[in-house]
Design a protein around this nucleic acid. Structure first.
Length: 499
RNA sequence: GACCCCAUCGUCUAGCGGUUAGGACACUGGCCUUUCACGCCGGCAACACGGGUUCGAUCCCCGUUGGGGUCGCCA
């Protein structure tokens, strides 16, 4: 590697379904590296022990591959600066954490979570933008060491200057200033010995010789902490480039509740990877002429980081569909498209799953079409009347569906067993017989009351498609008013102990 | 609430001191067509507001407003 090589990285945390925002960042990072004959690195940020899973890591890797974004270094393929999974780099972080403590730039903190929560509440009420009172900052190092030695639970916090201003440069925005006083003594090592994002990201980006950090705007406020760490270590910080955030239609940060955000949803809906990549590429960037349809290679050839525009783009599925249609019409022969179809849903494995739950309900093979249409269509048609639950009106049914939706969102593995126990629990808590509870779901999910078994069907369709269909059903019933929704949310929280 | 970021049609965007403010999606009128779709031609539609700077501001500066983000032992 040359010293001035352009090296970018994608650093997803494997805590859920692969997100289109990840694809967005991946694309820009990839394209910038390739444009400069540099390297694109994949690093898995699995420092959250509770939420990280290998399953999610696999899903993310799989969807990146599906998109056709290949990395030069990463877990599994390795590279000169591995390992590329943060959970495998613990000794490295400890070395640097110890160094910070030894040099007086960090200190052990013994505050309990309860204490911290109280302090935070108080300070925020008082209008402070930082939540920690630095109670442990001035414990003499010797005493602190003793308490650590004695086995007392602790975290490590970095010492943020008490006054002054941090000035740093964002490639797209220029100089950004932030007062140190507005920043907490950030935790850099958790009680379980794992580093937090802030420490791990700085150490890894430096060790992996990352030249450009291309990531979402939500990180801007954290940059001072990172800059300070670079300073503590005596390292040169990389170039920071914060991409504008992808938005929902209401301009809020793209979220699961308001939009399909999983790459899998787009994949299962039948969006082609070329189209999704192209579409995400035009969020904030454009070719110098008016062409909106461009290939990955064309983007690589023409890309300039500084050309990115900063308004947070709304992720508009309508336009994506239009683009996707152009790809289907313009870029594929019928035979080539047929190959894509097979890959998408007409393959043996997928057919088999569906057949397994269908064969008992078939009297002739041609029943297939009617019986399985809902597995191969996007929107399904349904009517209000069919959706209504026993002894309930539109609003009441809507509310139940909404609760179901919220519950489904919390499910981390969308297996039929999990779905079943979820509904079982709901049926008890809401005191509604399971069969009444699931009845409108048949309509919402498959479009018919006479259909394939619900939970199996949902598993095959997957979380995203299933949830979208329930959302459509709620729309069909007439959306809940904001007021009503708020009340329901309260009721839901108290009933299901949502935090 | 405090701090940070942002601001051109409903949406994605072009514009980088002088333009009838351009394109695309959506919507819409028409043409093509056995229907539909595609395609083609047309229409609707934007510089958030107020101050400066300037001969001249969408563009530069300041303020206001609006939107977003962050304030976790989550990333």
């Amino acid at each position: 590697m040359k010293d001035n090589e352009i090296r970018t990285r994608l650093a997803p945390s494997p805590t859920g379904d692969p997100h289109v925002g990840t694809a967005y960042q991946a694309l820009f990072g990839y394209v910038w590296a390739k444009k400069n004959n540099g390297s694109f690195i994949l690093r898995i940020e699995d420092t959250d022990r509770e939420r990280s899973s290998r399953e999610s890591e696999k899903a993310i890797i799989d969807s990146l591959k599906w998109l056709g974004l290949e990395w030069d270094e990463g877990p599994e393929i390795g590279g000169p600066y591995g390992p590329y999974r943060q959970s495998e780099r613990l000794e490295i972080y400890h070395e640097y954490i110890n160094r910070l403590v030894d040099e007086g730039n960090a200190y052990p903190c013994f505050c309990s979570r309860e204490h911290l929560a109280d302090v935070r509440k108080e300070r925020q009420k008082a209008g402070s933008s930082s939540g920690y009172d630095r109670k442990c900052r001035d414990i003499p190092p010797k005493e602190a060491a003793k308490r650590v030695e004695a086995g007392e639970e602790f975290t490590v916090r970095m010492k943020i200057p008490l006054e002054g201003t941090c000035v740093f440069e964002d490639l797209l925005r220029g100089k950004i200033e932030k007062d140190w006083a507005s920043i907490d003594d950030q935790v850099i090592m958790k009680a379980d010995g794992f580093p937090t994002y802030h420490l791990a990201v700085v150490v890894d980006d430096h060790l992996m010789k990352i030249s450009h950090i291309i990531r979402g705007e939500e990180w801007i406020n954290s940059v001072p902490k990172h800059v300070l760490l670079y300073e503590f270590f005596g390292w040169e910080p990389p170039v920071f480039c914060h991409l504008p955030l992808l938005r929902n239609t209401d301009k809020s940060k793209l979220s699961k509740r308001k939009n399909p955000v999983s790459i899998n949803w787009y994949r299962k809906t039948g969006i082609l990877p070329e189209a999704l990549l192209n579409f995400v590429g035009m969020m904030g960037w454009h070719l110098s002429d008016d062409r909106e349809k461009f290939s990955l290679q064309e983007m690589v050839d023409n890309f300039m980081l500084e050309d990115i525009s900063l308004g947070g783009p709304v992720f508009n599925v309508d336009k994506l569909l239009w683009l996707n249609g152009r790809y289907i019409r313009e870029d594929f022969s019928t035979d080539e498209l047929l190959d894509r179809f097979v890959e998408w849903g007409l393959n043996r494995e997928h057919f088999r799953k569906i057949l397994e739950i269908c064969k008992g309900r078939m009297s002739c093979l041609s029943d297939w079409g009617e019986l399985t249409g809902h597995f191969f269509s996007g929107r399904i048609s349904l009517t209000r009347d069919e959706l209504l639950m026993k002894d309930m009106d539109d609003t009441e049914t809507s509310e139940i569906l909404q609760i179901i939706l919220w519950e489904l969102e919390k499910l981390d593995s969308f297996s039929k067993e999990n779905i079943y126990s979820l509904f079982k629990g709901l049926s008890e808590k809401l005191d509604i017989k399971l069969k009444y509870l699931t009845q409108p779901l048949y309509i919402a999910i498959s479009g018919s009351a006479v259909s394939t078994p619900l939970f199996d069907t949902m598993e095959i369709l997957g979380s995203d498609i299933s949830r979208t269909r329930i959302k459509c059903a709620i729309e069909e019933l007439g959306d809940l008013s904001k007021k009503r929704l708020k009340l329901l949310e309260k009721k839901y929280d108290s009933l299901f102990g949502d935090s």
